[in-house]
Design a binder for these strands. Sequence first.
DNA 1: TTGTATGCGTTATCAA
DNA 2: TTGATAACGCATACAA
Lengths: 337, 337
Amino acid sequence: MNIYDISEKAGVSIATVSRVINGNAKVSEKTRQKILAIIEETGYTPNAFARGLGLNTMKTIGILCADCSDAYLASAIYHFERELRSHDYDVILCCTGYEQANKEKYLNLLMSKHVDAVILAGSNFIDTGSDPDSNSYIRDAAGEIPVIILNGFVDLPGVYCVLSDDQESVYSVTASLLEQGATSPLFLSRSDSYSGLQKKKGFIRALKENGMKDGEKRVLSTPGTIEENTELLLKKAAAGLVFDAVICSEDELAIAALKYAKQAGRLVPKDLSIVGFNNSKMSLCCEPELTTIDNRLSYACASAVDLLMKVMAGEDVPGKLLISSNLVVRGTTKALK
Amino acid sequence: MNIYDISEKAGVSIATVSRVINGNAKVSEKTRQKILAIIEETGYTPNAFARGLGLNTMKTIGILCADCSDAYLASAIYHFERELRSHDYDVILCCTGYEQANKEKYLNLLMSKHVDAVILAGSNFIDTGSDPDSNSYIRDAAGEIPVIILNGFVDLPGVYCVLSDDQESVYSVTASLLEQGATSPLFLSRSDSYSGLQKKKGFIRALKENGMKDGEKRVLSTPGTIEENTELLLKKAAAGLVFDAVICSEDELAIAALKYAKQAGRLVPKDLSIVGFNNSKMSLCCEPELTTIDNRLSYACASAVDLLMKVMAGEDVPGKLLISSNLVVRGTTKALK
DNA sequence: TTGTATGCGTTATCAA
DNA sequence: TTGATAACGCATACAA
């Protein structure tokens, strides 16, 4: 069933059928109704490939993420997808893993599929190293279609970044903890991604402003499972590391800190304060529940899609959108301002 | 840059270029190399739309899920995507939400995009009610392209179901608990999806075989958050409901049960055994960590994709694949066989 | 082994 | 308001 069949049944040309399908040009109400009726009756749907061939777009957005089973990224994708679909865009999902080579490979793959834009979900798509050319794959893509980055920032034409103000939120919670009497806070970081780095900066800045110059030394970067990180803290403490507050770049790390506290016999939040990040479901699974930073993911995703639609409509939009976070105080800290 | 440009540069016809791109027919090694070099040099990639138009396929699989931010579904999608991509298929993701009308709408939408097959991730795509026609949307789709269902079963031509043996695993753990001395187990169920129903059946069967005929009454169906379900158990217990074991259809419900135990001052696992389902990350976040049923999701997804590839290759494959689960014993039960 | 010509189903331009 | 026809870029049957 194609447009010729419909035109034949209706006794008109394919051009007219095309017109009523696309609702564009002028068609007499009478023929419009007639054609509409036939389309309804036959269940005809235009062939998406042919349409794509002509228009060179299939209203499809590519979303790249390292690992969509990660709770945070999974939520992001969920919000993106729903938001995009409400604008009649399809989503091609591509999980790249964490290797740089694959990120580039899959970005190019998506480009070759003529997606209308790509969304890079997660700050790990930005190389924070010193090689000035390591983000060139993003620049190349942005030369052809809009590129949206969630939680990462590079200043490149054609790339639009939506991110939560991670540095500020970590700075702020660390400062509050210090004000409350903490003397030896620790920062647990998952990785040196763009957002990881921002968080770390916020931590160090808060320490510096309180006269602590050894900020760098109070940062622990660690991949690894909950169990491994629990062990890590146990070991560090046994080796003499003193800390009375742990701020984490992810809820999962905070869970590990909490487990450490249990095993070390330290009272939370009395002897040890713990702060997570992301306000994920995990933060509600433990006892006490985690104080955590909510970075308003759903708002960020909606904003990103909104931005994208404007870009594709040719409007002028900012290349960077910074969204403030919200501290959710639960049981692993005392009341915080 | 299209196939004509390449053919011109190479001084051959487009047919020859097409041949080397598709690696099909005979092309002299010399011209092949020449064309390959030009393709490399120009960075040419075939236009996917044009190809799709001719072949009526774009090597794309549609994945429908109710909510990809759900931990279980997110993992499933991750595995599906990686597995499919290794077979050179793209994935169009579509989150439908839980309303029947939207499931149908989006399935049809995907069909109209000419996906090569669809995967329905999650048992909630199967209507378990009495209306014999409620799954007709699946039958209609399966009439055109292969339909794979993860964790759900309907016996329809063209639909292939891969599911874990939920009934058996719940039966088995319940029986073990009873054998160990439990006298009043409870089953907490999230929903009456196909898989929820299977789990419930397993529970009731185990009770019946141990002479307990009030199985139905020992099942609590509840949506709601962790907090709400904690409250629910508190209320039920206050109202006189007695239970010494809680088997759950999801880890999240088990977390709620654990929180109930803490608040009610009951010792886990001494006074109360708790079993979760899915072996999600959540099961590692609490204290003690959850005993839970691991339904081998990654294996199931890989099998499903394997099945699909065989179906599309015209091979004869079973319409139902049942995968045994694995009980992971941790801290919320005593040692179990 | 290579080339020619046609079809795939649209959209859009130009004429009527 | 409508219709005829040319793109769009590729794969492939058929011819050479």
